[in-house]
Structure formats: C-alpha cells, structure tokens
Simulated scan of single mutants.
Amino acid sequence: MEFRTQVKNESDIEIWEKSEAYDDYIGFIIAMNKSIYAIPLNKPLVLSDQVKQVLSILNIINDWISEVEPLKESCRFGNKAFAKFYNLLKIKIPDILSKEFSSVENQILTELATYLIESFGNSTRIDYGTGHELSFCMFLCGLFKVNILKKEDSKATVNIIFARYIEIIRRLQIRYQMEPAGSHGAWSLDDYQFVPFIWGSAQLIENPDLTPNLFVDDKYVQQFKSKYMFLGCIDFIMQVKKGLFHEHSNQLWNISGVQSWNKINDGLIKMYKKEVLGKFPIIQHVPFGNLFKYKSCTKQQTPLLASFKIPT
C-alpha cells in the first residue's frame, strides 16, 4: 500500500474519522490513558528491553540537539540552525530504526521512521504543534502494532518514553525559538501540546492531595511538577509566559474550575477528538499506509488496540 497523505479537503475528515487508522489511534490514546490512572511519574517501573531501546533512540536525538548550536544572528521566526538538526533526523533515523528493529519489514520501518522524524517539528517554518505530537503518538502506536512494545509496556510508554519526548521537545522549543504551529497554537492547550494534558490528568484521577482548582497555584506546581505530567506542563507555561495565568492560558484556567480529574480527563479526550483529530489543517499532513490504513473500519472489525484489556 502506498504511503502518502490522503486527507485532501474538509470532507475527507469524515472518511478519516471512520477509518481503521482513526480507530487504532484513538484506541491507543485511550488504552495508554487507562493504563496510568493514578500512576505518578516517579512510581518505579520495570522497563523492558524494548522500552530501553526506544529511550536510547530518544537520548541519541537529544545528543544531536547538543551538537547543533543555535545561530548567533537574530532570527525573527525561529533559529535556522533547527534545519541542521532536522537534517540529522532525516539522514540518521532510518538507519537507527533499521538496526534497532531489524525484525520489522522495510516498508513498515520507513513508515515508523517518517512518523518519528516528523514528530520534532517543521524545518521550514521552524514550528511545532499538535500535528507533530500526533506523529510521535502514531510512532508509539505503530510500535505496539508491530509488537515491539507490548501491553505490559503501557505505563512505561507514557511515564518514561512519552515523558522523555516532551522533555526533548521543550528543549527544542527554547533552544531554536520554535513557533507554535497553526494559528498561534489554536489546536493545543499551551501553544504546543495536548496529549500530556490528557495523560497527565489520568495520573491525577482520585488524587486526594491535588484537586483541580490547585493546579494554577504556583506553590502546588513546584511541589508536584516532577511527579505529575499535568503539573509539569503548567510549570513550563509559567516559565515561558509572562503575565496573569488566566489571561495567557484561559482554557486551562477554565479547566481548573471543573470538579474532578475524572471529568477533566473525559472532557479532554472529547476535546482532543474535536479540536485536533477533527481539524483538516492538522490531519491533511498525516501520511497513511500499511501501519495506519485509510479505509473504513467495518462493524465486524475490532480495533487492534482493543485487545489491551487494561482494567479501568
């Protein structure tokens, strides 16, 4: 099957939302979400060799950031040294994946490499947004689909691998002055991200120490930022934005008024489907092929990741 973009106009969004690819992807998001209910980032986890492999790849990418110094000249829209870093991704990632995952067929490796490369931003616009985040989640989902990552790796996929990815992305954003993708981050919660707020709210479900109204209080942010992904996101916002929180992050301020983390978590998943997965400007860039099939999911089909059977 040819690996290419398929969503060419607004009407194609409906086809995407009924596709196997959509079912597999949203199944992945929900399965990972359920796996970390009330599981903080600092809870010790046993890491499989496969999780360590993926983590090693991310650490190599992080080293490349250190190698590529930002240009000293003033750059109005992002630092152009990012293009040099991105070129390293394009040149080296296919070979690294081929070596690390030698049991996977070449076409699938090509698709996995594309999702991973595109998850670090756009080298022309020097921007980053939820479409790039989506690409990384598709990379992770793809690893489950080809049985590199397994059900027992679910917690580590979020709390170790994805958390490391977010650290690297934040480093990129600051080092190369990356712009928010889209209409000034219109399809995200903090200009850049969405998924860490979903999975981060799952970590806080039934938490007696941190009710939703407290996550905008800097004292609690500093106390819990290394323990909960959601608070880490809030801390990053407070570092990079000036002024009153309710002015620069109004959506999050409104969320702090919701009564429970369960309601926040459910609401964020619904919002993600509508504001990210349902938006043509984002999905038009997503390539489909053998891993994620752009064809209708019949009623007889069971989404691949429904077999996780992770207890709620």
Rank of each mutant, 00 (worst) to 15 (best):
E247S: 00
A21S: 13
L47M: 06
Q239W: 00
Y192Q: 04
P212H: 06
L116V: 13
L41W: 05
S103Y: 08
L268I: 08
G185C: 09
I310S: 02
H246P: 00
F28C: 01
F308I: 03
L214D: 01
N254C: 13
N62W: 09
D153N: 00
L47G: 02
K242S: 14
K273Q: 15
N265I: 08
L88H: 11
G257E: 05
S66F: 13
H248K: 01
S135C: 06
P311L: 00
N33Y: 07
I126R: 11
P94R: 01
R76Q: 15
E17H: 15
Q203P: 09
G182S: 12
E133Y: 03
F77N: 07
E10I: 12
F28G: 03
S188I: 06
K8Y: 15
S260L: 02
V68Y: 10
D190P: 02
E111Y: 09
K150Q: 13
S307A: 03
P94C: 10
K155T: 07
G182E: 07
L189E: 04
A81D: 11
W261M: 01
L45H: 11
K92C: 11
D23R: 03
P281D: 03
G129Y: 10
P180K: 04
Y294I: 06
Y25E: 09
P70L: 05
Q284I: 10
L134C: 05
I26K: 01
E152R: 07
E247K: 04
Q203A: 07
D266Q: 06
V240T: 14
N79F: 03
V276T: 05
K145A: 10
F3K: 05
V7R: 10
K8E: 15
I264T: 09
E69H: 06
G267E: 07
S35Q: 00
L112C: 00
N213V: 13
E69F: 11
G27S: 01
E100C: 02
S119R: 02
S260N: 11
K18H: 14
K145T: 08
L134I: 03
K18G: 12
D12Y: 09
E2A: 11
A83D: 10
I310R: 01
G267A: 03
D12P: 07
G278V: 04
F3I: 11
S56G: 15
F224P: 02
